[in-house]
Design a protein around this nucleic acid. Sequence first.
DNA 1: ATGGTGGATTTTCCA
Length: 258
Amino acid sequence: MLVATWNVNSIRARLPAVVKWLALRRPDVVCLQEIKCVDEQFPCEPFEDLGYACAIFGQKTYNGVAILAKAGVEDVVRGLPGDPGDVESRVIAATAGGLRVVNAYVVNGRQVGHEKYHYKLSWLARLARLVQAERAAHEQLAVVGDFNVTFDDRDVARPEAWHEQILCSTPEREALAGVVAAGVADSVRRFTQDKGPYTWWDFKTRGFERGDGLRIDHVLLSPEALERCERVDVDVEVRAASGASDHAPVVASLRDAS
DNA sequence: ATGGTGGATTTTCCA
């Protein structure tokens, strides 16, 4: 079972690239972030033609998340339950093929100390509560998405340039650790302790061309799901293509559940 | 170098 996460930076702008990648990669579960459209504008049909069911939590212009799954999507939850302050479309959960999937687009935070930075820390703490509840209810759990946070400096190609900057500050990393503490682990670090791989490169500073990458898109797995995980790949060639999103897809491969 | 690029919707916001 292939479980993928990809911040597409507008599903309408990226539709040809997403369809092409899906047809080649054929992941079983695909979690998209920053779809940047309302539910009615989401192009379900090309995905249904490829065999995917769609669960969408859209928003006009900004944010928006969706889960596509070949096995269908059940028990869909949109937003942070019981959290009236969660007014943006940043998280959707669903069950697909026996796996509970939480798909999050974490607040970017703009810069350390900014009002949105504090909102980011708060939102991550509230996401951790959702993960705790999902973990209590599901052994097979994947929490994936664009977390807009690196775990440590191995996730930063140029750590000296990013030291205590947005995406890399200690409070952000502590908030991400709070999500992990709810009962999931970073799947990539099951396989490597080396620097990288990276999943995002800044458009503005031509980060990809400069080799200035960060790993901010994650696949976090419950112990029972992590035990099934055979590999995690970043499809960096997708980021290298012209007209790409600023994020590359991340794909985890899970053995069949016993 | 406080720039740069890219997307959506508008002449600006967000990343």
